[in-house]
Nucleic acid binder design. Structure first.
Length: 460
RNA sequence: GGCCCCAUCGUCUAGCGGUCAGGACAUCAGGUUUUCAUCCUGAAAACCAGGGUUCGAUUCCCUGUGGGGUCACCA
């Protein structure tokens, strides 16, 4: 039975890299019909950020990651770790250490265990009675190597002599990560440990712990880490954002999902949007890359824009409403949305792409003149002609607007581009909009005339 | 710096001894006869270097270089 776990530390809101680790574990479990265990590693009470737990759960939920057990909370399992740590002391695999780290380093290799390992019980009791702070350390062998065949990387080995005697139980009675993770993975029957490469150098310490306990060793694999554009590990320093941040910026969950999964993993040409169901079917560790991928926001934009284009209109309307900041009626937004759907990269862009439909835009006289290729007087006259033409449009439709204005353009001997760009600029204040006649149609005759008149004044 | 991992277009990657080294994102050019966007077509763009092994290396081995990770009573 395959059992994997996602074990975040509640020291902040997980960024996209951490969430990807959860995703890969989830996909691996589901693909093989296994279980995902959620565990909260909160043994560092100094860095603990209480609000991060609900955020972690929210992110998993929004992205579509479900778990089968947990969340187990390590701080509520202290007795277990303490008991196991003392067990190791009894077995001679670990020892009480009353020495400072510096002193220990100085004594290393010179029989420091005379000070730490062989304290007889009365002596230990005596020191404890004096409230001398102490830790329990693992006795790491001085010789030999500890290694494993990594599921993703190659075989990895470390010389034991290079590994320090790890602290297992801190002086505050809390376990260190190393103790807690090994105990819990064993107790929770984790079959595959899948985490980021930043854990590689900790793995031999864990392996040694498994040996000390006499426990079977699970399979272990390390995912590449996501790097920032500067090729350093993605972190807050890069403004590494969480899924929550991206969602509020107008990215869609499935775009984020696709983007994350492709960072270090491949499927066909890496350009397809993938749903969670599809991913569960096709995901496998074999396609995980060994090199560290670089975070590229352009890919995210690509997936998001593509997904928005594929959305059915009612769904898009529903999704976009929370992002609307300008006052606009439902019927108007329903008319505009089909025109801007394929122009939307992020949902937040709805405001800037819609604004000129409800507000008189600023008019850039210089830009109009540049496009019209006419003098001020001629441009104003042309706009006047446009006003007359528009006024005379009886059946207000895209087709007749197009017909009449093309007629005018031909009659005046103007080229299409300057003729229509001048109108676009005069009415919308911008040079890039959906098709002009659709825009005019939605704006309505009154507003179009009003804006044309306004633009004429601005030109004077 | 020690230790460990990694190395194909700018980016994500396919490749698992013999390929014109393929695709996608981004970029550029052209087209869809008003802009932008979409869509279509095309272009430019990579095997880090040097040694081996082999009839033959992008692929296997070694060294170097480069990049990354890690060196806590943090995870």
């Amino acid at each position: 039975m395959i059992r994997v776990r996602f074990a975040p530390s509640p020291t902040g809101i997980p960024h996209i890299g951490n969430t990807r680790t959860a995703l890969y574990n989830f996909l691996f479990a589901r693909h093989h019909g296994g279980k995902l265990v959620l565990r909260i590693e909160d043994t560092d009470r100094e860095r603990l950020v209480p609000e991060s737990l609900p955020k972690i759960l929210e992110i998993l939920k929004l992205i579509g990651i479900t778990w089968d057990e947990g969340p187990y909370i390590q701080s509520k399992r202290l007795a277990i770790y303490q008991k196991l740590a003392h067990q190791l002391v009894d077995k001679g695999k670990a020892y009480y250490c009353f020495c400072s780290k510096e002193r220990l380093a100085g004594l290393r290799g010179q029989g420091y265990d005379q000070h730490c390992l062989k304290l007889t019980p009365p002596a230990v009791v005596g020191l404890m009675a004096k409230k001398t702070s102490h830790v329990i350390r693992l006795r790491v062998p001085d010789q030999g190597v500890t290694g494993w065949q990594d599921l993703i990387q190659s075989r990895i080995e470390f010389k034991n002599e290079l590994i320090d005697d790890q602290v297992l139980l801190k002086s505050d009675g809390y376990p260190t990560y190393h103790l807690a993770v090994v105990c819990d993975d064993h107790l929770m029957k984790i079959s595959h440990i899948l985490r980021g490469v930043e854990w590689i150098s900790s793995t031999p310490k864990h392996l040694l712990l498994y040996q000390a306990f006499g426990w079977p060793i699970p399979q272990i694999g390390h995912f590449p880490v996501i790097l920032g554009p500067d090729k350093a590990k993605l972190s807050k320093r890069h403004g590494a954002k969480s899924v929550l941040d991206y969602l509020s910026e107008g990215y869609l969950p499935d775009a984020l999902l696709t983007f994350m999964v492709y960072l270090g993993w491949s499927y066909k040409d890496n350009s397809k949007l993938l749903s969670m169901d599809k991913l569960i079917k096709i995901f496998g560790l074999e396609k995980i890359q060994t090199g560290n991928p670089i975070f590229d926001i352009q890919k995210l934009d690509y997936f998001n824009a593509k997904l928005i284009r594929q959305l059915a209109l009612p769904k898009l309307i529903q999704l976009i409403k929370p992002f609307l900041k300008i006052k606009i009626s439902s019927s108007l937004i329903n008319q505009i949305l089909p025109l801007i759907q394929e122009r939307l990269v992020k949902l937040t862009e709805i405001n800037e792409l819609t604004e000129y439909f409800v507000t008189q835009p600023k008019i850039d006289a210089a830009a109009i003149l540049k496009e019209s290729k006419l003098t001020v007087k001629e441009t104003i006259e042309y706009l006047e002609q446009v006003v007359k033409t528009v006024t005379n449009v009886v059946d207000w439709s895209v087709a007749s607007l197009e017909a009449k204005l093309h007629e005018l353009q031909a009659k005046l001997g103007l080229k299409p581009r300057p003729a229509f760009m001048t109108i676009r600029l005069a009415v919308t204040g911008r040079s890039a909009t959906p098709p002009l006649f659709d825009v005019l149609y939605i704006l309505g005759k009154t507003t179009v005339i009003k804006r044309l008149t306004y633009a004429q004044k601005a030109l004077k």
